[in-house]
Nucleic acid binder design. Structure first.
Lengths: 220, 220
DNA sequence: ACAAGAACTGAACCGAGGTTCATTCCATGG
DNA sequence: CCATGGAATGAACCTCGGTTCAGTTCTTGT
């Protein structure tokens, strides 16, 4: 017999795999999920189309892994801020800001990561990373509750709401049609400030007196 | 010459068009956008596939119109609650509740309307209806600010945040894999309560004292 | 009853793009 | 330097589902 997967080859394999994942990132940042096709990714990675399938079972899984990789990194960055020291409120504000700033800086990619339609596997991966972000926020909120900064509340739900508010409010500026334009930065800054204010008050303010609720009607 | 589009025929045409739109709704409520194909819709509408194209130029536009129709209805219902009388806070709470209750009642459909990947035209239609919902909330918030119930704030951004918080927090229970189960209703109720509490505090609470903010780091 | 012209039908068509695979290239150990 | 077998290649293939259109059915006015 001859040929045994040597160390060097193993590394080259790994490198190629990584290159492909990075290529997905680059292509998606350029044309979004909708426009990203396997052949393009292969080209960007300087690899033949078939080679992609040597490393990943399908387009869906490839893209999902690429998204997970990228999202994981973002989660780490945000989590680092969230776990720094200082009052929970300040940490929450900073975490939101970091998320927003980084998203706006990489518009197209962020839009794809957050909102763009894609294969089911990618969607599943999105759910996972959203959960991961929400977990970061949840921990932060629980911290705040424990040390008396925040009133008692459903931390899990609040974390989802924070995540949602952040995403939704950012989609406008991130959407592919809204190109960066003169006077864009200040607008974005104002928006981020508004988001931060919104979330902080939601989480940190004293409970609003239970309003009298009317019956909830509905028609099919 | 003979044959002139008579009144009766005109109505039949209209009826058929409506039937097709309703069929889209039914099919999407069943299998979501992903699984919905034109042939299915035609069958559900008791019409031949080709007939669909007599009334709509393409699948994308058909589906987009169906979504717009449905969403428009929901917006009306929520807007009605939002425009009723009473304190703005109570109206906001009720509006959120109505939205949530109706969404949970029609899980699959709501999920498709809110979050499921679909053709670009459908996405565009989604943006429009999101804007419409946000507008309803925005008006409500401005009302509250005017009459002194709510502190001054960026109503537009706050409305987006409310919309996002609502959507995101609901996606969990709405997601196709999470089937309704024993003990589901109370959980859902608790979740809706949490969402309402979150949004009300965000919008209605006194401004949170500006926290000291640290610098915002980032790594590429 | 019949001609004229719509509207309907649904099987066939077609394009796009993900996937495959026969062939070529290259690393390994003897 | 050669035999062995994994890795890479990329053009051909295949599938799926939206779209078309030639033939049929139905309506209308004479």
């Amino acid at each position: 017999m001859a040929y045994r997967r040597t160390e060097r080859v193993q590394e080259q394999l790994q490198d190629k795999r990584d290159r492909i994942l990075q290529a997905v990132r680059a292509v998606v940042a350029e044309v979004g999920f909708r426009g990203a096709q396997v052949a393009m990714v292969a080209e960007a990675a300087e690899v033949a189309t078939g080679t992609v399938y040597r490393h990943f079972p399908s387009k869906g899984e490839l893209f999902a892994e690429a998204l997970a990789l990228n999202a994981g990194h973002e989660v780490e960055v945000v989590a680092a801020v969230a776990k720094s020291d200082g009052p929970a409120a300040a940490r929450l504000a900073d975490a939101l800001r970091v998320f927003a700033v980084r998203a706006v800086r990489a518009r197209r990619l962020a839009y794809a990561m957050i909102a763009e339609p894609a294969e089911p596997e990618v969607d599943a991966a999105r759910l996972v990373y959203r959960r991961a972000f929400a977990d970061v926020f949840e921990t932060l909120i629980e911290d705040g509750i424990k040390n008396g900064e925040f009133p008692a509340q459903n931390a899990r739900a609040a974390a989802s709401c924070v995540m949602g508010a952040l995403n939704e409010a950012l989609i406008g500026p991130l959407a592919p049609e809204s190109r960066p334009q003169k006077g864009d930065a200040p607008t974005t800054k104002a928006l981020v400030d508004a988001i931060v204010a919104f979330c902080l008050q939601a989480v940190a303010a004293r409970p609003y007196p239970r309003p009298l609720l009317r019956s909830v009607e509905s028609t099919p």
